[in-house]
C-alpha cells in the first residue's frame, strides 16, 4: 500500500531525510517514531505529494506519489499537526465544506461526528472547542471521506490521557475496517499499543524498524528479573539458575511483593541507538 525506497531530502545544505525505505502492507498501522525535528512531518509531506524529494521513489496505492491524480487523493486522508479548521464555522459546517469537495452525502457528516463523539457539538463554532475536540474534528474530516490510507501526524500530542484513549479507540476501529494508517508520534507507549510495525527515525535516518515487541526483544541484552520485596527494597536478578533458587527461597519466605521482568521499551531502545530521548525536545 505504501512503499518508500531510498527517499532523500535536503533543504539547502541540510539533509533532513537520508535513504528512507520501508514497506507498509494493506490494513496495517505503521508508526514513525522520533523526536521533534527528526523529519517525520517532512516524510508525511513527501508521501502525500506536498513536497518534492531529491532521490529515491515513493509509491502509495500503487501510484508514484509524484503523479497522484485527483481520484487517488480522494483515497488518502491526511491529518497534519496543525489544526486547519475554520474557527468561525460550526463543526457541521467545517465538515460540510469537505463533504462538498469530495461529493460525500450530507448524512455522512452527522455519522462521522457521531463516530468521533462530537454529535452534541455539531452546531458549536470550532473556536469554542477544546484541543481534544479539535483533534477529533480533524479526525472526522479525515474519516468522512472513507479513505484507504490515512496519515496522522502526532494526533495525540498535548492531549489528556482520556482523550488519547478515545482517539486510540477510533484509530483501531478504522484499522478494523481495513484502513492502512501511517502514524507519527514521539510517544512510545502509543506506538507500542497501536502499531503493527514501527520505524525509529533520528536526524533523518531510520535507525531500526520492525514490530514493537520484536525490537524490544532484540535489544533485551541484560535479561533481568526485578523483585519488589515487602520490606520496600527492589532486587534485580539476572536470568540464571542461581537467581531461580534465590527467587524460590524468597517466595517460600513470603517476602516478595511483586515480580517483574525488565525488557527494554521502545524509549530505551531509541536511547541506546541514538543517545537521545524520544521526547527530549518536547
Amino acid at each position: 500500500m505504501i512503499q518508500c525506497n531510498g527517499i532523500t531530502k535536503s533543504y539547502t545544505d541540510k539533509k533532513v531525510l537520508s535513504g528512507i525505505s520501508f514497506d507498509i502492507p494493506d490494513g496495517q498501522i505503521f508508526g514513525l517514531l522520533g523526536p521533534s525535528g527528526a523529519g517525520k512531518t517532512t516524510l508525511i509531506k513527501i508521501l502525500t505529494g506536498q513536497l518534492t524529494f531529491d532521490e529515491g521513489s515513493a509509491m502509495i496505492l500503487q501510484k508514484n506519489v509524484k503523479h497522484l491524480s485527483g481520484s487517488d487523493r480522494k483515497k488518502i486522508g491526511i491529518m497534519m499537526d496543525q489544526f486547519g479548521v475554520y474557527e468561525r464555522l460550526s463543526c457541521y459546517d467545517n465538515l460540510k465544506v469537505f463533504a462538498d469537495i469530495y461529493s460525500v452525502p450530507k448524512s455522512r457528516i452527522m455519522e462521522t461526528l457521531k463516530l468521533v463523539g462530537l454529535e452534541d457539538s455539531a452546531r458549536k463554532p470550532a473556536s469554542s472547542l477544546s484541543k481534544g475536540m479539535l483533534v477529533r474534528l480533524q479526525l472526522a474530516r479525515v474519516f468522512m471521506i472513507s479513505p484507504d490510507v490515512i496519515f496522522l501526524d502526532e494526533p495525540t500530542t498535548g492531549l489528556d490521557p482520556m482523550t488519547q484513549k478515545q482517539i486510540h479507540r477510533i484509530i483501531l476501529d478504522k484499522k478494523k475496517h481495513g484502513c492502512t494508517i501511517f502514524l507519527t508520534t514521539h510517544n512510545m507507549e502509543e506506538a507500542a499499543k497501536l502499531c503493527d510495525t514501527v520505524a525509529l527515525l533520528n536526524e533523518g535516518v531510520i535507525v531500526d524498524s520492525g514490530a514493537p515487541d520484536e525490537i524490544c526483544r532484540r535489544f533485551n541484552h541484560q535479561k533481568k528479573i526485578v523483585l519488589h520485596l515487602k520490606s520496600g527494597d527492589d532486587v534485580e536478578l539476572p536470568h540464571s539458575k542461581e537467581s531461580a533458587e534465590k527467587i524460590s527461597k524468597l517466595l517460600e519466605e513470603e517476602s516478595v511483593e511483586a515480580i517483574h521482568s525488565s525488557e527494554p521499551t521502545l524509549e530505551t531502545v531509541f536511547l541506546e541507538l541514538t543517545g537521545r530521548k524520544l521526547e527530549e525536545d518536547n
Binding site: 502525500t48 506536498q50 485527483g70 487523493r73 480522494k74 491526511i78 497534519m80 496543525q82 489544526f83 486547519g84 479548521v85 475554520y86 474557527e87 469537505f98 469537495i101 469530495y102 474530516r141
Partner: peptide
C-alpha cells in the same frame, strides 16, 4: 495563518 488553505490544497482544490 490558520492552515486551512493547506488543508484545502490537500483536498484537491
Amino acid at each position: 495563518e490558520k492552515n486551512t488553505l493547506r488543508v484545502l490544497m490537500m483536498s484537491n482544490v
